[in-house]
């Protein structure tokens, strides 16, 4: 198998086009199943009542928010090392989805925090780290938006991603440390009740759905980016004439 073959934009474009509907369909089905389990099958929690059900969205979103950042850094590193344009495109296509999941995680966290802690926001270590992660996403997107030359935007964004990914563990550690020193009214998230089997299933399925969604959205965004950047080339012209 020749990886370079798939890394060429003219192969990637139609291939991604074929794959997107499948991932989108999977994302949809898994979301429906996951939500069904989450809202109708999973038992009511005896401590937190019905409100806990938001974790079926919150936890997968939080996982994805961190995971996508690492994947972005991975593509950035590949792009910088081997100068493959498609890697930069992938890194760039992932950023908005990552930021979206981070925002969703924060928002659902706040919704969950209200009944649990009696406050929309507490400076819990995880919430705080998540907030800083959102800042990192915003930084990368702002930098790339500010640079007109796509080549420079790719590279600058990639460097920032790498610096960010080295810093994320340090930031997380420092925030946890800071939080333990300032233990005030904090209710620890880790004291989550032992989870019923069905709850776990619901969460895993939702996480898988988030995966599929991310792949579908990132691929379609990458497709647009590829088309825009390669608009001078023959295959794009042929492509555009083929589908008027």
């Amino acid at each position: 198998m020749n990886l370079y073959h798939y890394a060429s934009p003219s192969t990637f474009y139609p291939l991604a086009g074929k794959l997107i509907p499948w991932f989108a369909a999977l994302a949809f089905i898994l979301t429906v199943v996951g939500l069904y389990i989450g809202f109708f099958v999973a038992p009511t929690d005896f401590q937190q009542g019905e409100g806990y059900r938001i974790i079926f969205i919150h936890v997968p979103a939080a996982w994805m928010s961190m995971f996508i950042y690492v994947v972005m850094a991975f593509w950035s590193a590949i792009g910088l090392a081997w100068n493959t344009r498609l890697s930069f495109v992938m890194a760039r296509a992932l950023a908005p989805t990552g930021a979206m999941f981070t925002f969703v995680a924060l928002w659902t966290g706040a919704l969950w925090g209200k009944p649990m802690w009696g406050a929309w926001w507490v400076w819990d270590a995880r919430l705080t780290s998540e907030l800083i992660l959102l800042f990192l996403y915003v930084g990368v997107m702002a930098l790339q938006a500010a640079i007109d030359d796509p080549r420079r935007a790719d590279r600058a964004g990639a460097l920032l991603n790498l610096v960010g990914v080295i810093n994320v563990p340090i930031i997380y550690f420092s925030v946890t440390w800071w939080n333990t020193l300032h233990q005030g009214s904090s209710v620890s998230l880790t004291r989550a009740p032992s989870m019923a089997q069905t709850m776990l299933w619901g969460m895993l399925i939702m996480a898988l759905a988030a995966w599929m969604y991310t792949i579908a959205v990132a691929l379609s965004r990458a497709r647009t980016l590829v088309l825009e950047r390669e608009r001078q080339t023959e295959w794009v012209r042929a492509q555009l004439e083929g589908q008027p």
Binding site: F135, L136, A142, L143, I170, S174, V175
Partner: peptide, 14 residues
């Protein structure tokens, strides 16, 4: 400011 402020967090905390 936007890019670097988050990276300053550990220095600020320590």
């Amino acid at each position: 400011t936007l890019l670097i402020m988050p990276l300053y967090v550990p220095a600020l905390i320590f």
